[in-house]
Simulated scan of single mutants.
Amino acid sequence: MIRGYCKLGMIEDAKKVFNGMCCKPNVFTYNTFVAGLCRKGEMKYAREIVDEMIVAKECLPDIVTFTTFIDGYCKHNQLEEAEKCMEEMVRRNCKPNVYTYNAFIYGLCMNGKVELEEKRMMSKMRLKGLKDNVATHTNLLKGLCIMGRFDDAANHLKEMISLGLKPDVKAYAMVIHDYCKLGKLTKAIVLLDEMKSRGLGLAERKYNQLQKE
């Protein structure tokens, strides 16, 4: 019920169910509720729930809890809080994984911080023995596009391939879409042909959107 209410955005109803539980919530219950609060931007209340977990000691926050929290902070442009949360995560002997770092890198890229700070985070991730994946680099592509560096984004697509990664439709579509918006149709078509040669195809809805632009 909590998950259902959260998916529908009915946070107040989710709160009533959570607070009215006749049994003690487990980590899955907490994580479900925290995820719903973070999606709604209720970061302060989500923090209170996590603090409740810590004080109770019966059900401590795990890697999913912290990663969800970091993702929420980043998507609501609270990067300082996200970094504090990651530091707390490490202090509590909960090791960040690639999803945790990807959430943070996404936040940096969405705020146009795709140079020193994003590279610092990627280096930190690699030093921890974690390998960046397609999602990591797609976040970087998004950041480059936000900054208007479309040629750099196109070059990064090539770099992904040289690293042995396989850019997906989302990665290609991101750059193609922005090229179309700028009227750089030749470059967009080159990327579209490259994508098709790799066995990837855009949905009809996306093709129609590109044609309109």
Rank of each mutant, 00 (worst) to 15 (best):
L191D: 06
D168Y: 03
T186H: 06
K212S: 13
L108R: 04
T136R: 13
R198G: 13
D152S: 13
K24H: 08
V114F: 05
G4M: 03
M89C: 05
I146N: 12
R149M: 10
C38D: 03
K206V: 15
T29V: 15
F104A: 08
L116H: 05
K44P: 02
H76P: 14
T67G: 10
G148N: 09
P61E: 03
I176T: 06
R39K: 15
L192Q: 06
Q211F: 15
M174Y: 02
L192G: 01
V169P: 01
R126K: 15
L37C: 10
F18I: 03
K158F: 02
A203R: 14
P167Q: 11
Y5F: 15
N31E: 01
R205K: 14
K196L: 04
Y99M: 11
K113S: 07
I161D: 08
P96T: 11
G164H: 08
L127S: 06
K170I: 08
N93A: 13
K24S: 11
I146H: 08
V98M: 04
V90T: 04
T32V: 15
G4H: 03
E81D: 09
K158V: 07
V169M: 06
L191T: 03
V17E: 06
E80D: 09
E115L: 04
N93Y: 13
G201F: 13
E52S: 11
R3E: 04
A46F: 11
G183D: 09
L130N: 01
H76G: 12
K206R: 08
I63N: 00
K128F: 11
P96V: 14
D151F: 09
V90D: 00
G148Q: 05
N208R: 14
Y106A: 12
F150T: 11
G112T: 09
M43D: 04
E194I: 01
K7D: 05
E213T: 07
M160T: 10
T32G: 12
R205D: 15
H137M: 00
H177T: 05
G20A: 11
H137A: 01
L130H: 03
V134C: 11
G41E: 08
K16D: 03
K75M: 14
E87Q: 12
M121D: 00
R126V: 15
K166D: 05
L79K: 01
L141W: 05
F28D: 03
L140A: 09
V134S: 11
M110P: 00
D13N: 14
A154G: 02
T186E: 11
D13F: 05
P167D: 08
R198S: 04
T65P: 00
A154I: 02
L144A: 06
K158C: 03
L165G: 10
V169G: 02
A153T: 04
I176V: 13
M110C: 07
I70L: 08
K84N: 10
D178Y: 08
V90G: 00
V134N: 12
G41S: 09
K181Q: 14
S162T: 14
K84Q: 10
C74P: 15
R198Y: 05
I105P: 03
K113V: 03
P96H: 11
M121C: 15
F28H: 07
N93M: 11
K113M: 14
Y101S: 02
A103P: 13
E58R: 09
T100R: 12
I11E: 03
R205W: 07
H177P: 00
C59K: 10
C6N: 01
N111E: 14
N93I: 09
N19S: 10
N102I: 08
L202Y: 12
